[in-house]
Nucleic acid binder design. Structure first.
Lengths: 192, 192
DNA sequence: CTCCATTGTCTAGCGGTGCTAGGGTCGGAT
DNA sequence: ATCCGACCCTAGCACCGCTAGACAATGGAG
C-alpha cells in the first residue's frame, strides 16, 4: 500500500507545483502568457499531464483563485484585527483589500475578472470564496446601518472596492488620490 | 475627383459595417466569438481587408468602445434630464448606467473590461470617452458635498457603479436586490 | 488605343493557442 | 518470468491573430 500512497503524495505535490507555477507565471507576465505549453515546460512535464490534473486551463485559473481567496481572507482579518473601532476596522479592511489587489493582480484577476469555472454567491460556492466574503461581512456588518441587511451592505461595499481596484489598475482612473477615494467610500458608506 | 470621393465613401461605409458587425457578433455570442475569420466572413470580405481599416482586433474593440461611449453619454443625459432635483437625477443616472451595461454587455466590456488600446483619464483621451465622463460629472458634481472635488467624487461614484455592473453580470453578486444596492449607493454617497 | 503604374483584394501560410488520440515504456502483482 | 495496467510522451487536430506575395482591376499618360 505504501507505494500507492507515495504515488498519491507525489501526484498531489505535482498538482501544487502546477498551480504555483501558473500563478507565478501569471504574476510575472500576465495570464496571457500562461499557455499550456509554457506551463508544461516549466513544470518539466508534457502538456497532457496538465489535463490529468485539471479539465483545462479554466480549472487551473480556478485553483489559483481559490488559493488567492484564502490568502485574501487572512490578509483582511489580520488588518481588521489590528484596528480599533468599527470605522477604523472598515478603513483597514478597505486598504487591505485594495492592497491585495494591487500586489497580486494576477490572483485578483483569477478571482474576480477571469472565468475560473467557479460558482459565486450560491450554496455550492467553494468554501474559500464563502470565507473571503465572510471576512468582509464580519467587519462590514457592524456598520451596515439600522434596518439594513448586512449581506446586502457588504455586497454593495465590496462592489465599490472592486470597481476602484479594477479601474485603477487598468489605468482607467488616475493613479493618484486613491487613498482619498477610499476614504470617501468609508466615510459615506459606513454608518457608525 | 468624384470617383475618388465615391471610393472614399464606400470605404467609410465598409468600416462602419465592420464595427457594426463586430458589435453585433459580440452581443450575440460574446467577444471570444469575434474572430477575424468570422468577422471577415460576415462582412463578405477576406481577413486582410480588416487590417486595411484597423491595426488589429484590439482597434476594432476600441472602435466599438468609442461608439458605445457616445451612446452611453446620450442615455445618461436623457435619463437625468427627465428627473427633478439633484438626488433624483443621481438615481436616474445610476439606473441608466446600469441599464446600459446590462443591455449592452459586449459594448460595456469593450469600454471598461477589454483592451481596446484607448487612453483613459489623460489629455489625449478620445473625445467620446471624455464626454461620457463629463455626462457623469454634470449630474454628480452637484452632490459631491462641500469641499470635495467633483472630479474625485465622480470617479469614486463611477467606480462603485462599475463594480456593481460587472459583479452582477458575471454572477458574482446575486441578481436580485440590484435596485436596493443602487439605492443604497445613491442615498449614502450623494450629499444634497 | 495601348501601355503602365497604382490600388485593391485574395489565397496561402506562419507561428501560436487549447486540447486529445494513440502508442510505448516501465513497474508491481501473480 | 510473465503479464497487465498505470503512466507519460509524441504527434496532431482545429482554431487563433496576423502578413507576404500573387493577381486583377482601374485610372492616367503617351
Amino acid at each position: 500500500m505504501s507505494v500507492q500512497e507515495r504515488k498519491q503524495r507525489e501526484r498531489a505535490e505535482r498538482e501544487r507545483l502546477i498551480v504555483a507555477t501558473a500563478r507565478e507565471l501569471a504574476e510575472q507576465q500576465g495570464w496571457d502568457a500562461v499557455t499550456t505549453r509554457r506551463l508544461a515546460e516549466r513544470i518539466e512535464y508534457s502538456q497532457p499531464v496538465l489535463y490529468s490534473h485539471f479539465r483545462g486551463k479554466r480549472e487551473i485559473i480556478g485553483a489559483v483563485a481559490l488559493q488567492g481567496a484564502s490568502e485574501m481572507a487572512v490578509a483582511m482579518r489580520a488588518a481588521t484585527a489590528a484596528a480599533d473601532g468599527p470605522r477604523e476596522r472598515v478603513a483597514a479592511l478597505a486598504r487591505a483589500y485594495l492592497d491585495f489587489a494591487a500586489r497580486n493582480p494576477a490572483v485578483y484577476d483569477a478571482l474576480f475578472q477571469l472565468d475560473g469555472g467557479l460558482a459565486y454567491a450560491r450554496e455550492d460556492t467553494p468554501a474559500p470564496l464563502k470565507d473571503a466574503f465572510a471576512a468582509l461581512l464580519e467587519t462590514l456588518g457592524e456598520v451596515a446601518g439600522d434596518g439594513v441587511d448586512p449581506g446586502l451592505f457588504t455586497e454593495t461595499f465590496w462592489a465599490s472596492l472592486h470597481g476602484l481596484a479594477t479601474l485603477t489598475r487598468e489605468g482607467r482612473l488616475p493613479p493618484e488620490h486613491t487613498e482619498r477615494r477610499v476614504q470617501m467610500l468609508v466615510d459615506r458608506l459606513a454608518m457608525a
